[in-house]
Amino acid sequence: MSDRPENDQYEEFVRLLLEHEPRVRAFLRGLLPTWQDVEDVTQEASLVAWRKFREFENGTSFGGWLLTIARFEALKHRRRVARSPLVFSDDVWELLADPSHEEDPEQARRRHLETCLQKMAPNARELILRVHEPGVFIRNVAIQSGKSEQSFYKVIQRLRRSLLDCVAKGVSAEGAI
């Protein structure tokens, strides 16, 4: 990397980041208690990756390299997060934080999620997207819905599960072809 002009390096870095950043966010989501933590660590990891980009060896996996950086940044961040039921104990965190076990089903998963979302009833699609909007608290949406909070959470759980099953089915059918 080091012999290339900075502009070229920058373009190459942006291209690779575009490709792999969603995978990093998904990886971090399982390690950090809130989306705010995920956004902060993703940004920090991306900055560290840019600073160290000269050390990245062409031909090796950028995604794996970025996940390793993200894991380290998540570990640093985790030390600053207050204890809560959302913060897993060290041994569970280590089990979930092994980037070498991280699959990269990005393209296929995204394509199937798109299809599965389109298959959903419009009201259900709108609702599931609404509770995942940045800055939206699911509890507030539950209160506004007029349902009891518990039954609202059950609805969201069912929608997530139906999407998960639909995506898994699509990915598995693709693999069988």
């Binding site: 995204r110 999620l113 999407l163």
Partner: peptide
Amino acid sequence: LFKQYCQVDAELRRSAE
């Protein structure tokens, strides 16, 4: 299963954004 849920959550977040 936990990781699959996290992946779907991340994708939904992207769509919602």
